[in-house]
Every structure is written in structure tokens, then in C-alpha cells.
Design a binder for these strands. Structure first.
Lengths: 347, 347
DNA sequence: AACGTTACCGGCATCGATTGCGTAAAAACG
DNA sequence: CGTTTTTACGCAATCGATGCCGGTAACGTT
């Protein structure tokens, strides 16, 4: 491969260059480019030709300085697992067709990162933020500040109950009830709940649904059957072992996420418990992996893509409205997908 | 909830507001803020105090207009599956500590989207691009144009061989050889390769590695054992069925990705073929799902996180250099992770 | 007392666009 | 042919910052 000389290329052409080489004013070029009525068709054509010839690309930064918006949306998610990746795709979909660019940042479940990301995105003058809070976030003052500054904001999935913002959430209560009802119908009477951290609001909502379903069926609530653990497989594994060792043998486990369900499944398998015969299992999220496990995993399916789309729509709505819209909350419905892990009786 | 009156908040404070309310010039404020030596400590303190009081946030857009860079990196990936999500995390990691913001876009494996994303990001004046090409991209003129325009560019994983750019890639040839060597050692002699689309360069590199390994062991190349298919589970399923029905019964299948391996596994299972006894199976990527399948899936592991980090490092290097650096290619090594799906003999 | 230093600070052009206003030339009108 | 109306375009301010250049005042020096 020959060593070729490389030089910094010329600066990109600006509207000025076009004006100069055509002997017209920059205003005329600007107007021609944006199809204003009061510009001579010939002039316009000349401008357009020259623009193409010079490979002119409008400088959005300069534009943003004038218009005070950047046509970009900042998105902050805790991570990019299946659920969030899908939701971001939904946001992307809507944003793209509305001419917006999406800037995605991961907070990595860290409160500090979330703050940093918020700052960064704002400094980049995004037109607003779509956020799902990190699991480490308990204080939402940073979000509150955004709102007082008038930054359009939409929260989704992991939202803060004590923040009066526009939100898109899942009916977690209902999802949990569906799961527990189904387990009850399968004959399970000692249903455990493998929960997330106690401060995690989604987990608590599902817990409420779980408790409501138990009540509805006249089942007693056994606190020993409710175990909190961190959001990873290893913790779930240990929590499940603990559950089994406690002498409180459950006949079903409902978990707050598929990842935890996987941990539980491995622990059950390790302890020689058959699923679903000895212990039925239902997860939450319906990730693709659910149908690949042995046994295939029943799970409460979230409309992640839809959730992203709705969040983006609400966001754009807010952006395009003259006045500030009162916050509202959209609640989406989950659907239980029944697979082998919870089917004790063939229908 | 009381219906509260909401009004657009005041425009954010600018450097001008600080100057005016302090009775000093804009330049002084600017200097005070940036810790220049030639400014009276008292003045500086006053400026800082006022800045805090007015909740002043510097407008990056204005700054970018002057400095001609935005401290942001555009990243385009085909999708956000496990591999790319991990790589993006790697990019994020490096970028964040260097003070850069990462704007991630998905091309959704579409050539058109890739072009659109490129345009959008450039218009947003990102300082450069880190790209992994979509599977639909065969023409790389858009990337070539970037390079002639002097836009810093790093390609990773899915790169174009006919583009003389900085790249970070995996040694696919070696990965495939490791897989096939391992299968050979397990006693397999009729090893099939479930490939991606014929135009997909990564798939072809792995194919070369596969062929080289066969040659090395003196195994004949049977074209019927090489099947191309689209990158999803359903196609892999059908391709595997076709393979089994062809009368060319393989005793091992090496697939270009885990997702295809899953399709193959399901097809094998459906046809009553035992894995690994009848047919051994090795995938590529080592996604988390690999260890959750039954049997657990052997797979060639890619350092996705590392790849993202290296790509970001090369990018920053390019950005910080005065002259344009000659393109170079970093090759990372894969590692075969052996699990149940390919273990015919206990060691 | 006159001059040079130094410390501080302000004016202004600039980055690349948009946009309101003003106006010359051309067209339409009476 | 004079007047009004259009048409088409230029001028200059503006957005929020940076940074060069130059100026003023308080010192110190001889």
C-alpha cells in the first residue's frame, strides 16, 4: 500500500461561499434555499446548482443558535438490555419520522452517571429528555430542576412517583395479578415473589398486584415467600436457594424480571426441583430468551416498542404545544404469555 | 390535584445577563468564568456568584459555532443486540472520561437508514463517526465521502474491505479455525457451516477460516455443507432442516452467530437429533443466552466491550492529532468457549 | 516629573445561519 | 407618462459565545 500524502481538506462550504461565488447576498441564498416566494426562479436555480456543486451542507449548529432548538432528543436509559433497546427503537422510529435525532445515553444504573448524562445532554442543547431512571436513583431533584427550567421531559417505565411529570408506564399491578391468577388456576397455593430491591418502585407495584391477587383468592400472605434481591442472575440464584432452604417450600415463584427467573430456574434445577411439576415459574418482560429456556419460561410481556413510541409521541406533543401541557400518565397493559414453566395441567 | 397555572419559564441566563447585572463587559465575564489570569479576584468571585445565582449554563451550541467542534461522537450501529449494546457501552466508557457525548443511532440493517443517520449526525456537527455497517450496505460511497471531507471515522466489526479507513475488527478467520479445530478434536468429520448472506464479509472471513481448518486436517470440502441464510432464527431453522433433508447428514454445525445456532438447535431438536451426540454445535458471539440453552452452547467469544473501547480510543487519537493519521487496522482475538453442545468426549 | 510596566477590562469582529426592514428596478395601472 | 404596486434582493441585527487588540489607571523607576 503506497504511503499517500494526506492533507486537511478545505473547510466545508457555507452559505457565504455560495453567495460570493454567485455575486448575490447571503440573504438571497438563504431564502432561495428555503423556498421563499420572493426570489427569482432563475436565481433560485443558480443557488441550488451552486450548492450542489460546492457540496454545501447547512450548519445545524448555527441554525440552532438562532432557532433555539436542535431537533434532537436526549434519551437516558439505565442500560441497553432487550427491554430498553427495544424501547429506544420505538423512540427512534417516531423521532426519525418527525425529523428528530435521538441521542441515547446509558446511566449504567448509576445515579452519578445519570446526573452527568443529564448535564451533558442539556449542554448539547437537546430539545428535551426522555428518561428511564436508574435503579440507584432515589432523589429526583435533577429531574425537578429540568422541569422548572421548562425542559420538556417524559419519563417511562422506571418513573418517580413523587414527580409530577409526563409518564408512560406499564400497569405493573395488573401484570402481576395476571401472573398470580394464572398460577392459582394451575393449582399453586404457595406462591413466592422474587422481588427487586425494596426501594424499586416497579418491583413494589408488582408486589401490590401479587398481594391483591393472593387476597382475591383467599390465600394467606406469607412474608417469608417474598424475597428481595439485586437485579442479577447470581443474586436471584442465591435468593432462590435461600427460599428453598427456609423450609418454606413454595409451589410457584413469580419473579420481577426474566433475568431473575433465570437465576431461580438454575437454582431450582441445581436443587433437583422440577419445573413446573414441583415449582412453577413465571417471569416478567418476555425477553426472547424466555422461549429458549428449558422449560420455556412463562412471562408477562411488556410492549416495550410501543412504550418507546408513546413516550416519543408524548414528548413531541409537548414540544409542539405553545403552552406547557399538564403532565399526564399513559398506562399500557401487559399480556401474560404462558409457556411450559407454569403449565401444570394440560388444558 | 389542583390545576395549577403553568407558564413558560424565563429564557436561560446568558453571559450577557451576568455582564449586565454586574456592570462589567461580556469579555470580562467570559474570562472570569474560564479562569484567566488577568482578571481581578474580586471581579471573578462576583461573576461566579452571579452565575450561580442566575443558574447560568453555558450554551454549548454557541461555543460549538466558534470552536467548530461539539465534543460529541456519532455512533451508527446496525442494531442494539447484545454484541452492539456491549460495544456501545465500551465506546461510551472511553468517550465519557474524555468528556465526549455519544450519540447512538441504529441503522436497523437498512442502507437507507444508514445514509439518513450519517447525514443527521453530520448536520448535528458531531466531531466524527464510529460506524458498524448495516448488513444491507454494499456500497460505501457515503463513508468515502466522509473521509474526503475529512470527517474522522472509525469502522468496527462490520467493516468494508474496500475502504481505506481506520478499523477495529475481530480475527474472524482465527475464530472460525478455533471452532472447527475443536470440533475436529471432538471427532467430527462432516462439519457444516451455517453462513450469513453471501455478501456479508464477516461471514466470508469465517468461511475462509472454516475452509482453512478443514484443509489443515485433510478434510474434504463439501459445498453442500455450506449453507447461506439470513440473519434470523427462522431462516436458520429452515436452513438446518434443508441441510438434514439433503442426505448430507453432518456430524457438526458451526454457525456464523449464536442466533443462527439457536435456530439450528431448535431444528435439530425438532428432528430428533441429539446435541452433541448426533450433531455437535458451535456458535459465534458468546451471547449470555449461550449458557442458558439446553444443552449449553459452545461459542466463539468476541471482546465486544473491548472492541468498543479500542474504537473510541482510535477515534480520539485521530481527533487529537494535528495531521491526518494514516488508517490502521486493529485486530482483536476471539476465544472459543467450550460448553455442552460440542463436547462429545469428556476430557 | 516623565516614562515604562503591569493588571484589568471593554470594544468589536467572528462563527453560520435567519429575518425584518428598506429600496431599486420592473411591471402594472390610470 | 406619472404613479402605484410588485418583484427581487441587499443591509444589518441577532443568536451566545470566543479572542484579538487596544485602552486606562495604578504603580514603580529613574
Amino acid at each position: 500500500m503506497p504511503l499517500q500524502r494526506r492533507e486537511r481538506p478545505a473547510k466545508p462550504a457555507t452559505i457565504k461561499d455560495i453567495a460570493r461565488s454567485l455575486g448575490v447576498s447571503i440573504s438571497t441564498v438563504s431564502r432561495a434555499m428555503r423556498d421563499f416566494p420572493d426570489v427569482n426562479p432563475d436565481t433560485k436555480q443558480a443557488v441550488l446548482d451552486m450548492a450542489k456543486q460546492l457540496d454545501y451542507q447547512p450548519n445545524q449548529v448555527a441554525l440552532s443558535l438562532v432557532t433555539r432548538h436542535t431537533h434532537s432528543i436526549g434519551v437516558i436509559v439505565p442500560n441497553l438490555d432487550y427491554f430498553f433497546a427495544t424501547a429506544v427503537r420505538g423512540i427512534d422510529e417516531i423521532a426519525l419520522e418527525a425529523g428528530y435525532t435521538v441521542l441515547t445515553c446509558q446511566s449504567n444504573e448509576s445515579y452519578g452517571r445519570e446526573i452527568t448524562n443529564t448535564q451533558r445532554l442539556l449542554n448539547s442543547q437537546v430539545d428535551g429528555l426522555i428518561v428511564s431512571l436508574s435503579s440507584a436513583t432515589s432523589n429526583v431533584d435533577h429531574m425537578r430542576r429540568l422541569m422548572t427550567r421548562g425542559v420538556p421531559l417524559v419519563l417511562f417505565d422506571r418513573v418517580a412517583t413523587d414527580l409530577d411529570a409526563t409518564k408512560v408506564v406499564l400497569d405493573n399491578h395488573d401484570g402481576a395479578m395476571q401472573a398470580v391468577n394464572h398460577l392459582f388456576e394451575q393449582g399453586c397455593r404457595r406462591i413466592a415473589y422474587l422481588a427487586g430491591p425494596p426501594s424499586f418502585s416497579i418491583s413494589n407495584q408488582r408486589k401490590d398486584g401479587y398481594l391483591a391477587a393472593l387476597r382475591q383468592h383467599g390465600l394467606p400472605v406469607n412474608e417469608d415467600l417474598i424475597i428481595h434481591c439485586e437485579f442479577d442472575q447470581a443474586h436471584a440464584y442465591r435468593a432462590t436457594e435461600q427460599l428453598l432452604a427456609s423450609g418454606q417450600q413454595p409451589d410457584a415463584i413469580f419473579t420481577v424480571s426474566d433475568r431473575l427467573a433465570i437465576g431461580a430456574l438454575l437454582a431450582l434445577r441445581h436443587r433437583g426441583q422440577r419445573v413446573p411439576e414441583d415449582v412453577a415459574l413465571v417471569g416478567f418482560n418476555d425477553e426472547p430468551v424466555a422461549s429458549l429456556l428449558t422449560p420455556t419460561l412463562s412471562s408477562v410481556s411488556q410492549p416495550a416498542f410501543e412504550m418507546g413510541k408513546v413516550a416519543a409521541q408524548l414528548f413531541l406533543e409537548q414540544l409542539n404545544s405553545e403552552s406547557i401541557l399538564p403532565p399526564r400518565t399513559i398506562v399500557l397493559k401487559p399480556v401474560l404469555v404462558v409457556r411450559e414453566s407454569s403449565l401444570k395441567r394440560r388444558p
